[in-house]
């Protein structure tokens, strides 16, 4: 019977012209996505994730028409809360967050017809000792054109590697580590927060939300800002396990936190994606977090304005307590 089906369909003629057209489309897409230092660093991270046993996604079920349910997003956050609760508090001499950050340089560069955006990439670290002493580490990966059109304009502009009057360079720099005076490394909606304050936060979702609303209220709190402050407790602050669990539970009840389904971050790590919109000084921005539901860790945070361009991409490499000592960050594996 299959033979009858094959005969019905016959053998279409090969189409070399079509192959050339599609090949050109693919090349254009590949050039558009060219961001060398960043992509090499990310590839290094992806390789590290494989070594660490992080599960990469399988063949994705193509179901763009099925919107993930509100209820499934809520239950994912509640399940993450249970995982977060069983985490260990202060399990090490230092708390550390290490991430790969790409940010669009705030000014357009170039001249005349050849104007373009650049994006800066770096490894950024924050360290805190148990006594509350704080360090900031950084290693520049070098700036690259932000997108394909930017890259073309940058080439027409003569492919400059630095720009007079701007602290920007295309070359990678050495890692640095600096002590942060005053021991205040953390902030919530622009207000500084000490380790002691974070440890004293409420551990029930209703109480925590009220407390967070109060902290952010002077900045004219909208619900997106509350969602942002709560999600910051999940990864960018040394929150105790019960505070992280309460933050997950409080987020589950916020209607403006939308579940997007399973997504991969730029390094290919897959998790549950949640998004919310918040008002920042520059206007409305959208923030999307990808959360590893198995470990309750945040994998990445992407911030963009009106969805046109990724203004800031953060990939979390490590977050939590460690017995390693603060050192200047190295470039990730895979970076030249």
């Amino acid at each position: 019977m299959d033979e009858l089906v094959r005969e019905l369909y016959g053998e279409p003629a090969p189409d070399p012209a079509l192959k050339t057209r599609v090949g050109a489309l693919l090349e254009a897409e590949a050039r558009r996505r060219l961001r060398r230092p960043w992509s090499m660093a990310v590839a290094g991270l992806a390789a590290a994730a494989v070594v660490a046993g992080v599960v990469l996604a399988g063949v994705a079920a193509e179901s763009p028409d099925e919107a993930p349910g509100v209820e499934s997003g809520r239950s994912i956050l509640l399940a993450a809360a249970i995982t977060a609760e069983s985490g260990t508090a202060d399990a090490g001499a230092y708390w550390r967050v290490r991430k790969l950050v790409r940010e669009r340089y705030p000014e357009m560069l170039g001249s005349g017809q050849n104007r373009y955006w650049m994006a800066e990439s770096r490894v950024a670290e924050q360290w805190m000792s148990r006594s509350g002493k704080v360090w900031a580490g950084s290693a520049e990966l070098g700036a690259t054109p932000a997108g394909r059109a930017d890259e073309e304009a940058w080439r027409r502009d003569g492919s400059p590697v630095r720009w007079p009057g701007h602290r920007l360079s295309t070359s990678a720099g050495k890692g640095t580590l600096e002590a942060v005076p005053g021991g205040v490394a953390f902030s919530m909606a622009g207000k500084s927060m000490t380790f002691a304050r974070i440890r004293a936060l409420a551990t029930d979702p209703v109480g925590l939300r009220a407390e967070v609303e109060e902290i952010v209220s002077s900045t004219g709190a909208d619900d997106g800002l509350v969602a942002d402050a709560l999600s910051g407790l999940l990864w960018s602050k040394p929150s105790p396990p019960d505070v992280r669990a309460a933050a997950y539970r409080a987020l589950a009840e916020l209607p403006e936190v939308r579940y997007l389904g399973q997504r991969a971050d730029e390094s290919g790590r897959v998790g549950a994606a949640f998004t919310f919109t918040l008002r920042e000084p520059i206007g409305l921005v959208r923030r999307t977090l990808i959360i590893d539901t198995g470990s309750s860790q945040v994998l990445s945070s992407v911030t963009d304005a009106a969805g046109v361009r990724d203004d800031q991409v953060e990939l979390v490499l490590e977050a939590g307590w460690t017995n390693e000592k603060p050192t200047a960050p190295d470039l990730p594996p895979g970076t030249p």
């Binding site: 599609v22 693919l26 992806a46 063949v59």
Partner: peptide, 19 residues
């Protein structure tokens, strides 16, 4: 044409998710 082009573009964009 459209579907063949979209197949390879989709594969390229989702190559991080290929297992």
């Amino acid at each position: 044409e459209d579907v063949v082009a979209e197949t390879f573009l989709t594969a390229f964009r989702k190559r991080t998710r290929y297992d």
